[in-house]
Nucleic acid binder design. Structure first.
Lengths: 215, 215
DNA sequence: CGACCGGTTGGTCGGGCGACCAACGGGCCG
DNA sequence: CGGCCCGTTGGTCGCCCGACCAACCGGTCG
């Protein structure tokens, strides 16, 4: 694409090595020496690119989220139906999440940061979630979702469920990312209760007022 | 309850302080000196109770899971209907998760451990998940769920969604734990697609075979 | 050809980490 | 009353962390 001499791939080596180690051990448990060694270099070279370890994590996060959004956008680029866009976006998101170390680092390691670095990470995450908020709102705007849904809550459920797959998924299991995403979508789109055993329609949207609020 | 001289609450002070700090900063980013200070003691005292920092985390995890399971079991103790048991269990689990620092520590900090300590944590988590597996199987056994569900996948979705609430929930928000749990349950039990726009019944349980497996 | 400069090398530095321990205090029991 | 022992104290130890830097290498360009 752009001009690439010999140094551009080296940059990625540091990011890739850091992403893999951060995912395996966590940010704090990983040393700069480990990262440099895994990248086939020395700590000094790493310091030349990134003044602090936190700066490396932040750059990793920014690039990871940008690549994630790009992958999802490309997966739904030529689809018009808002509900189908949401379904395909979740599918693409899960595939990306399970294929890149950086995507999983983003989920957990911001907790180890303090001060400005932490604020920066939260800002990046909010920007990322805004994109998904848009997808959910558009899906609801199509009128094909139940009209009484709390869309913010739905977004939390969708992203939370997809992200949690990273905690148990193994590439050696029977299901690929697409199968998991489809299964989750089936559950959420149609519900897990059998049609014959659903509550009367009146209940949906007015969930047992007597129980809400106590506890 | 049992005999309590003066030292029993001191024990809890270390665990409580550690749980709060681990949740806020992560396990690796927290020092034993911080924990001791927050507990109103000195590092030596902490070392007397726990030989290593990892041992403290493991004990925290074991006690946290036991207390969690006890809270959930007590919440469904006198309920017979399996589907209702599952619903109430998720509700109780979320309330517990959001009220205890230890419960959130369990979710993330095992990644920082290595070797035997890590295996021990995974063993504890598997034991915990087995309980939930039982609840899901019993709910399915009632015949009130759709018959074609992948129960393992459903368990992952349920626990993953509930656990993810800890990442965004604020006690100062509009919703309490019970409201969030009920909202999630509504989504999952009845589905988010409007009845009028559902696919024909034939689709459910045979999710578009043409798309499964590629990508 | 020689000056330049982006990038690497190998080593160093102060700090603060987890782990440890000898000495001690004071409540309990014989 | 005296001895014992559980638990705390305050400090230390060696290690290794993140950060840093002077010297250097080699490709590029004037």
């Amino acid at each position: 694409m752009t001009k690439k001499k010999t140094s551009a791939p080296v940059d990625d080596r540091f990011l890739d090595a850091a992403a893999r180690l951060f995912r395996q051990q966590g940010f704090e448990a990983t040393t700069v020496r480990e990262i440099a060694k895994a990248a086939g270099s020395l700590p000094g070279s790493l310091h030349y690119r990134y003044p602090t370890k936190a700066a490396l994590l932040i750059d990793l996060t920014r690039r990871g989220m940008d690549a994630d959004l790009a992958a999802v956008r490309s997966a739904i680029g030529n689809v018009a139906d808002p509900v189908e866009r949401l379904r395909l976006a979740l599918r693409a998101r899960l595939s990306y999440l399970l294929s890149r170390d950086a995507a999983q680092v983003i989920l957990y390691d911001w907790r180890a940061l303090k001060g400005k670095a932490r604020e920066e990470m939260i800002r990046l995450r909010d920007r990322y979630e805004a994109f998904w908020s848009g997808l959910v709102y558009e899906a609801a705007g199509s009128g094909r979702l139940r009209p009484d849904l709390d869309l913010k809550m739905l977004r939390f459920l969708l992203l939370g469920a997809i992200n949690s797959v990273a905690q148990w998924y193994s590439p050696r299991g029977q299901c690929g990312p697409a199968e998991v995403a489809d299964a989750f979508w089936e559950f959420l789109a149609f519900g897990v209760l059998d049609d014959a055993h659903r509550m009367p329609a009146a209940r949906r949207g007015a969930p047992e007022p007597a129980l809400v609020g106590e506890e």
